[in-house]
Nucleic acid binder design. Structure first.
Length: 274
DNA sequence: CTTCACGCCTGTCAGC
DNA sequence: TGCTGACAGGCGTGAA
């Protein structure tokens, strides 16, 4: 479900609420979601620890604890983090409950159970290859036009696949990749290295713009996504192409089409994107 | 090295 | 109504 703007929305909300809170207990209904260490060991590292910081890297959330351990959470397709008062009704797909010392709970709910959690020292984080090898993120100083130009020039695969590659650019997923290509007017199947400089510049700007707007809107709720208060984002109302198959392009009126590119459903305007 | 198909899970929806 | 297959905001693995 969540791409960078959704995860950032959750991070900002939780930062206001749970920094300084102590974890009093952890209820684990689906132990296999913890990839390292085992669910039993995890409890010993978490209980009686205070949450001191919440960071994000790409689509990973990193909760730093007072014992210098880090609780790493990746929501994958359908993970949700819900902050709510104790004794309130739980999401039916709640898999883990972090009990806090302020009469609140942080629920980890996940329909498809593809999410992954870890508890590690800072040094051990390097064992999560998805974190270690992540490329620069949109809206950061590292994501320069120069970097983007060099990246595209040496990649001959489809541009859509490159946008989804977290080692190339951190944080984009299927919705925002389609949106970036729509804003830049580029067909998702174009080989990355074929883009001419003016197109590379347009796409670089589009990536930053689309992600910025996604964050401003509190993310996109297409199907499962909810923020930590259980509320939807609003970016779905501003989408150019994603999920708009058969509807008129907001720019030219041509009907939006969908095709499989890089194994993912890809939405595009056949008139605006070449 | 890059690129691609597949598996992981469960739920939903279109089509028969 | 009930079944089947395709598909869904992701990503790691192994093969070509």
């Amino acid at each position: 479900m969540p791409e960078m703007p959704e995860v950032e929305t959750i991070r900002r909300q939780l930062a206001e609420k749970i920094i300084g809170c102590m974890i009093t207990d952890v209820t684990i209904s689906l132990p296999r979601l913890f990839k390292w260490p085992t669910a039993n060991e995890v409890k010993a590292y978490l209980i009686h620890q205070t949450i001191t910081a919440i960071k994000r890297r790409g689509k990973y959330l990193l909760l730093t604890l007072s014992n210098e351990r880090v609780l790493v959470i990746h929501l994958r397709m359908t993970g949700r983090l819900l902050y709510q008062v104790k004794n309130q009704k739980h999401d039916p797909y709640t898999r883990i409950v972090f009990h806090l010392d302020n009469d609140k709970e942080l629920l980890y709910a996940d329909t498809r159970t593809l999410g992954t959690l870890y508890v590690m020292s800072e040094a051990e984080l390097t064992n999560i290859t998805g974190l270690t090898s992540m490329g620069p993120e949109p809206l950061t100083p590292e994501f320069t036009l120069d970097y983007f130009q060099t990246l595209l020039a040496k990649r001959h695969g489809k541009i859509k696949a490159l946008l989804l590659n977290q080692q190339a650019i951190g944080g984009l997923g299927n919705i925002y990749a389609d949106e970036c290509l729509a804003v830049a007017g580029i067909d998702p199947e174009r080989p990355a290295s074929d883009l001419v400089p003016i197109e590379v510049g347009k796409l670089h700007a589009a990536v930053n713009r689309v992600i910025k707007e996604g964050i401003e809107d509190g993310g996109t709720t297409f199907r499962d996504y909810k923020n930590s208060e259980g509320a939807s984002g609003t970016h779905q109302h501003r989408l150019w192409v994603y999920g708009r198959t058969g509807q008129p392009c907001r720019r030219c009126g041509e009907l939006i089409l969908k095709k499989i590119v890089a194994g993912r459903g890809s939405h595009y305007c056949p008139n605006c994107q070449h």
